[in-house]
Amino acid sequence: MEVSYDKESRKIVQAIERFARKHSLWVLAYGTGCGAIEVPPTMTSRYDAERFGIRGAATPRQADVLLITGYLSVKTLKRVIRTYEQMQDPKYVIGFGSCTINGGMYWDSYNTIKLLDMYIPVDVYINGCMPRPEAVISGFIELQKVIAEGKAEGARKYKENLDWYRANQQKIIHNWNMPDYNW
């Protein structure tokens, strides 16, 4: 059931929603890449990402941000897709490290993907091999800016172009035995 609001009140609600989303990012760190080692210092006392409302989430259902820390092999990509589809809207993805951008040092590997945004939509990339915690926090602040502008539309893009994403995913995952999640 769609509830119709008048434009002004909708605007105010949206502003509050965006402010809350921006200041409360619960992170699901997918830590199979080398970058997982940069996440603990980001969260703990030296760099303390909780200052910005960034907090770890225990399960995909509770998370807002999927942090892909480094390279993904075909096997882990399958799990990432499953995790991403279990997350609830609005959801964002941060690609972390060179490997998610262009393959990094695994550019000629037979088993790692080179371009993360062909398989799941990425809102913010953090480059570096590995990015230091300062860079990670600056990436999160960039994501906050994108959310405040209302441009973090990765999940919507994924839903609209699902066939294209599915074709790319099934090009490398041959044995597609995953359930369909009803978002």
């Binding site: 809350a20 200052r51 409302g53 609830q88």
Partner: peptide, 25 residues
């Protein structure tokens, strides 16, 4: 834990954000 910590209003933003999330489970 020798950290600065979030603002005191942090839990309000968390709860507002959670209420504004879509839920389809």
């Amino acid at each position: 834990q020798n950290r600065f910590g979030p603002p005191i209003t942090q839990n309000f933003w968390d709860i507002i954000k959670l209420y504004s999330k879509k839920t389809a489970v």
